[in-house]
Design a protein around this nucleic acid. Structure first.
Length: 474
RNA sequence: CGAGGAGUAGCGCAGUUUGGUAGCGCGCUUGGUUCGGGACCAAGAGGUCGUGGGUUCAAAUCCCGUCUCCUCGACCA
């Protein structure tokens, strides 16, 4: 394509954010649509991000003493109905297998929308004594929820996630574990995804079907809307009683365990795209970027250029940096645009001029700044990657904080969320008021704010029992 | 599930009003010249027009059915 014919490949991020998102995930080859409604194919460039998310989280879980396991995808329909709230919440969106082996099944099987039931069933068999507790297992798997409207990574019929499930002797322990895992997630978002989140408990209306309490973390997307990036749930004895998770306690009496669960999904990929992306496309956090550095040779057929880029690549790789050397026949300008759209944190340009001067041109994706480094200065590149990650977090955090506003009235709340803000507001605690806010402002309660106190309910004006963050959400 | 939009080459589209046997751009292949912000020349390959039926001498085009995808709303990691 000639310079003067250059057409913008992706929609304008400011005026058409949803289209920008769809364009970016497709054009950068993170994902493609599957042939079945609502399904997605996670392509290598996208799956690499997931693999980095997985390995980093998996390491953290294991450090906390969680073991990995795998439970079957098919769950007897009757399991789902054992916990009243649970079935009510999930029944509308499960896919059901009615036929197999050429015959109708006696009992339909649901494709797991989440695994509390089947894991509860198995834990019921495995837990006998207080000595078996805590029992903490996690699985990496796919789940299926037949959603009405879908969008790659953010909401798909089938998605990948991890779901951790634990049983404890006491409610205090289980609840503490629920909060501990929430903190683990938030730390992961900060240090690995460079993404700030608000964390806190969810309202009854927003909690997980069957839980006593649900905690969530909410990330602010580029347009100021909220995305639930992960949840942890304290189940009390609800599932333990439904599935007979009982043990003989320290005093010799038979008692039910207390369970909790937690999960994050491939939605995190959508979250980081919509948090960090800009008009040129993706801006990937270095810790999860498939490539942290792309090397673009200039005049690569000239004597010594490709050789020099290979030497540089090996030096960077030796320091543990993930490197792509783009020695394709495309022009340098084409490569610059391509890799910027794909969000590679650092680009290094290396041509005859640099080689002669013993330098290399290093370009940051997040700020688009360029600087000359000594050729082969691996430590400086390493340090730059660290800096980029920190700066991405700081910018996102400053942005989120600048977009938290307070409201005393429904009108103010509406104006706040329409302006792309998280709105802090008081709440009397009545479901009717929460419903009214949603109807009036198309905004939902995201999490409780434990750090501030608003005096009156934003809806009815009575004394506030709680302070909440409201936002429009994906 | 309600309201819109769209299915024609790998991608993006034109052609449908007024039926006449399929075209453009990008990409792809081969060769050559290029290379510091989407290079250029030349020669090529690639489509039973989503699908089933109907009308007609003749259907991408007209009629009926059907499937799928996208966007926006009510539900959700």
């Amino acid at each position: 394509m000639a310079k003067n014919e250059f057409v913008k490949e992706i929609a304008d991020i400011e005026t058409d954010f949803p289209q920008w998102y769809t364009d970016v995930v497709l054009k950068t080859k993170l994902v493609d649509y599957g042939p079945v409604k609502g399904t997605m194919v996670i392509r290598p460039y996208g799956y690499a991000i997931w693999e980095h998310i997985q390995s980093e989280l998996d390491r953290r879980f294991k450090q906390m003493g969680v073991e990995n396991a795998y439970f079957p995808m098919l769950i007897p329909m009757s399991f789902l109905t054992k916990e009243a709230e649970h079935v009510e919440g999930f029944a509308p969106e499960v896919a059901v297998v009615t036929h197999a082996g050429g015959a109708k099944l006696e009992e339909p099987l649901v494709v797991r929308p989440t695994s509390e039931t089947i894991i509860g069933h198995m834990f019921g068999k495995w837990v006998e004594s207080w000595r078996d507790l805590p029992l903490r297992q996690n699985q990496w798997c796919n789940v299926m929820r037949w959603e009405k409207t879908t969008r790659p990574f953010l909401r798909t019929s089938e998605f990948l996630w991890q779901e951790g499930h634990s049983v404890y002797e006491t409610g205090e322990e289980a609840e503490a574990a629920t909060l501990q895992m929430l903190a683990c997630y938030a730390d992961f978002c900060k240090n690995v995804l460079c993404m700030p989140v608000l964390t806190g408990r969810k309202t009854e209306k927003e909690k997980f079907a069957g839980a006593v309490a649900t905690y969530g973390m909410e990330a602010m997307m580029h347009d100021g809307k909220s995305l639930q990036a992960g949840t942890t749930h304290y189940m009390g004895q609800n599932f333990a009683k439904a599935f007979g998770v009982q043990f003989t306690g320290r005093e010799g009496t038979l008692q039910y365990g207390y369970t909790m669960s937690y999960g994050v999904s491939t939605r995190l990929i959508g979250a980081l795209i919509m948090t960090h992306g800009d008009a040129r496309g993706l801006v990937l956090p270095p810790p999860v970027a498939p490539f942290e550095v792309v090397i673009v040779p200039i005049a690569q057929k000239k004597e010594g250029v490709l050789e020099a880029t290979h030497v540089l690549k090996e030096a960077l790789e030796k320091a543990g940096i993930r490197v792509k050397l783009d020695d394709s026949d495309n022009s340098p300008g084409w490569k610059f645009n391509e890799w910027e759209m794909k969000g590679v944190p650092v680009r290094i340009e290396l041509g005859p001029r640099d080689i002669e001067a013993g330098k290399m041109l290093v370009c940051r994706r997040d700020t688009l700044e360029k600087a000359e480094y000594a050729l082969g200065d691996v430590e400086a590149v390493s340090a730059l990657l660290e800096t980029i990650g920190r700066d991405m977090y700081s910018r996102a955090k400053a942005r989120m904080e600048s977009r938290i506003v307070e409201a005393d009235t429904l009108e103010a709340l509406l104006a706040g969320v329409e302006g792309g803000n998280f709105v802090r507001a008081g709440w009397c605690g009545e479901r009717a008021c929460e419903d009214k806010v949603k109807e009036f402002a198309q905004a939902t309660a995201r999490v409780f704010d434990e750090t501030h106190t608003m005096g009156t309910c934003v809806c009815c004006g009575k004394k506030a029992a709680h302070t909440l963050f409201f936002a429009r959400a994906y």
